[in-house]
Computed example of a mutant assay.
Amino acid sequence: MPLSFYKYQGTGNDFVMIDNRKLTFPADDEQLVKSLCNRRTGIGADGLILLQDHPDYDFEMVYFNADGRLGSMCGNGARCTVRFAKQLGVIEDVAYFLAADGEHQANIERNQIQLKMGDVTSVEQIGEDYYLNTGSPHYVRFVDEVQELDVYAEGRAVRYNGRFKAEGTNVNFVERLSDNDIYVRTYERGVEDETLSCGTGVTACALVAGLEGAQSPVSVKTPGGNLQVTFERHGAGFRYIYLIGPAKLVFSGTMPIQEKV
């Protein structure tokens, strides 16, 4: 049967978006999701997102990693879903929606999506590195000359070490560009490679920069584009966290899929 889809990207982090308000997509078919995200034989994406109805919210966002498995919160994906919801006429310029880590609110201002992230109650320090959850787990390491780093090898070494191997973690490498400007590259679990940008990762890195003296807002450069994170320190953590950046439609189409028997 033909599958209608839309391809969106937020600072180079790209997603297959599907309007699943009629619940017709076989969400339990991991192999199908994986094949749709395949860059050689499918549509190609870092993940797949279903937009679904919810009785208490404007919509529900259901996110799958490129490996076909149900994922945790995805910040860039959420901004793309908000833009997709506006395209479908589900919302105007404000959204209240449900994601894997709970409820979120977002505002659309011209080309920018301002996404309210969940509060972060604590940050763990591991040697000179940090570990925190911004809807997804993130390991943060400051480095020099991040553009020269082998992110795949270095990130994989952390993601598959003794502590993180079972659950997995995203691994971020950060270079300070100035007091309130950083450059971030991320190895994402589920994709098992570097992506051009990671919204929850950018958020985590900006918050850690805040622990080390940066002031809100923090401007973040990624290989896929620029984002901004605002926040307020609160005890050992942070609140009023916003991830701000663009989300764009790339193309749409249909493709035949075989239903799982």
Rank of each mutant, 00 (worst) to 15 (best):
Y183F: 15
T186E: 03
F25P: 06
V143S: 13
Q9K: 01
T11Q: 00
T134I: 11
E212I: 11
I91Y: 12
D56Q: 15
V123H: 02
I244W: 03
R239A: 07
G68R: 01
I126S: 09
S72Y: 00
K7Q: 01
N111Q: 11
Y131Q: 06
H104V: 14
E148G: 08
N172C: 14
R233H: 10
S219E: 00
S122T: 14
Q87W: 11
V261P: 08
Y131N: 08
R156N: 14
N172V: 09
G201P: 15
Y8R: 02
R176H: 08
V184Q: 02
Y131G: 08
I49W: 01
L3G: 04
F59P: 04
V171N: 01
D28E: 12
V146T: 09
E92A: 12
G135F: 00
V16P: 03
R159P: 09
N170M: 08
E148F: 07
F64R: 01
S4N: 07
H234Y: 12
D119K: 08
E194I: 09
Y152S: 12
L48Q: 02
G47P: 09
A106V: 14
V218C: 04
E30Q: 14
T186I: 13
D58C: 05
Y139P: 14
Y242Q: 15
G190L: 04
I182R: 01
Y130F: 15
T203H: 02
G199A: 08
E30W: 01
F5L: 03
M1N: 05
N226T: 11
Y183N: 11
T222D: 07
G44L: 03
P55N: 08
S122A: 15
Q31H: 10
S219R: 00
F5C: 06
Y63D: 03
I126G: 08
F142G: 13
D56V: 04
G71V: 13
K22H: 13
T230L: 02
S35H: 12
Y240P: 05
N111C: 08
Y240D: 15
Q105G: 05
G168T: 12
G102F: 01
K260D: 10
T24F: 14
G168C: 05
E30M: 09
L115T: 15
N38G: 06
V174K: 00
E167M: 09
N111D: 14
N20S: 07
N161H: 11
D28K: 07
S35A: 12
F5G: 03
Q147W: 03
M17P: 04
V123E: 00
C37A: 06
F251S: 06
Y96I: 07
G77N: 04
Q228E: 13
Y242K: 14
C80D: 11
V82E: 04
L227A: 08
R233D: 02
N65D: 10
V123D: 03
L36Q: 03
R185G: 10
A214Q: 04
L88S: 07
T134A: 08
N20C: 06
R141L: 05
H234L: 09
P26Y: 02
D46V: 14
T41Y: 13
Q112N: 10
A166C: 05
T169H: 05
A45H: 03
V151Y: 01
F164I: 07
G118E: 02
D144V: 09
S252H: 13
E259R: 15
R189I: 15
